[in-house]
Design a protein around this nucleic acid. Structure first.
Lengths: 243, 243
DNA sequence: CGGAAGTTTGACGTGTGTCAATACGAGTGG
DNA sequence: CCACTCGTATTGACACACGTCAAACTTCCG
């Protein structure tokens, strides 16, 4: 994607995002050092990196993960446009998790130096960062419930609904379907399941007619039934901040 | 515990906590509305509460959790002295998780109104809150790895080490043992295991001589072996902020 | 002393993992 | 346009980690 200035950021046109003042946008723009593209499958942050960069996702999907020394991998949560990278964990210090691009991804790069100025001069933006951190924790919480206390069927249903809603919110939905770049291996790693069992679980859900998946495209056919499986309450979607 | 003013807070004497300026402490003290005690087993925040209060843990243990409608429970993480409550998830809005006292707990109650003033006038404190939120997310991350990708044996070892270190950091250690108020049911709910299997796993670890547990007291007998099981790297412990 | 809460044990069932092979789809090169 | 290949999806057979049920035991405490 071409370099974009923050005041012409395509994300700002979306309804999910809270509007900012002109002054705030100017500051964010000044903090933005540039933009990089990372190809699908490449690492954005390496687990153990010292002092990782600060990014935000401008387009595409990514995910945070941890790997054990013997290679077992756990996906912590997925990152979509508007999400921050590098603010988690030690805001300064080593990154305790890796981040990998799921699709080709455009990232805004921010200068870490200016974070301090942001906290000093733009308390509302500072609050937004806290909000985003807390919100992301909420997603990990939800994922932990799936991994720990839901059956494979429930967990997969929960994840599909969740990703669907998030993708739709950032306008990635096209007539009741979203572009779905996630492989079964990703689902397995996110939920702590094996690849084979994930496959069989997806097949069961599909046979029940609850959703359609194919050609990188996900459609929820029976959202009510899925929500019931997922023990999922509809919650009001507050506007979320965009840095 | 008697009402304590923030500048005489016993936690501030501990090495883990980052010192604050006098002005900051004064502000925190002004923000503190009082102190309450919650008895072991009682709920501090009810899942679904509208606009829950803001607290910090002054003494005792608590935990955050979610329950599904049929009663299955997942513990998200444990809270020890110095941890904040109510800043997670929707910093304003419903709480998506409950918080329960594990032991009798003393809590500092903060007025939500002043949060805004804090962000405006004390950017460093604002940053600390973000830090604490991100740090807590890191703990949920770690727990998710245990639940999703570690065996029961590894997961339990990981949790014991982790809790030991945290408790020792806030001076709850007495000659290589800590006061350990957690039941096997709590461990099970934190790791997504059944009570019975948790019991058998603990017994196995004990038979291996890796730790001692009894009379509410935990001792790590073979920390190296435990760390190996847990795939655990020692990390430098930065001073953590205290609000 | 009695009851509640927590811990232990054994027997047995099953959800999920592992292994191994096949099928499919998209891209590449001849 | 067909072979080839590589990543992904699919299947079946089988193993085991972990769950469930049920009962006893231990500790704590009023």
């Amino acid at each position: 994607m071409k370099q974009v200035r923050c005041y012409e950021c395509p994300l700002r046109r979306l309804a999910v995002f809270k509007p900012n003042t002109e002054e705030e946008i100017d500051f964010i723009d000044a903090m933005k050092r540039g933009q990089i593209q990372v190809l699908a499958g490449r690492e954005i942050v390496h687990q153990g990196d010292r002092d990782p960069r600060l990014y935000s996702v401008l387009s595409g999907w990514a995910f945070r993960f941890k790997t054990l020394t013997d290679g077992r991998r756990q996906i912590l949560n997925f990152l979509l446009p508007g999400d921050l990278i590098g603010f988690q964990a030690q805001l300064l210090g080593d990154s305790e998790h890796g981040v990998e691009a799921l699709t080709d991804v455009d990232l805004c790069v921010f200068s870490r130096d200016k974070i301090w100025e942001l906290y000093n001069r733009y308390p509302e933006l500072a609050f937004d960062i806290t909000w985003l951190a807390a919100h992301e924790e909420g997603m990990v919480d939800e994922n932990l419930v799936s991994s720990g206390r839901r059956t494979a069927l429930e967990a997969v249903a929960t994840l599909l609904i969740h990703l669907y809603k998030r993708a739709a919110a950032v306008d990635l939905a096209v007539k009741d379907g979203i572009d779905f770049p996630i492989t079964q291996q990703h689902i397995a790693d996110a939920l702590g399941l094996s690849l084979v069992h994930t496959n069989k679980t997806l097949r069961r859900l599909r046979k029940l007619g609850l959703f359609g998946l194919g050609q990188r495209r996900l459609v929820l056919l029976e959202p009510k039934a899925l929500r019931k499986l997922a023990d999922y309450f509809e919650r009001p979607i507050n506007a979320r901040p965009l840095i």
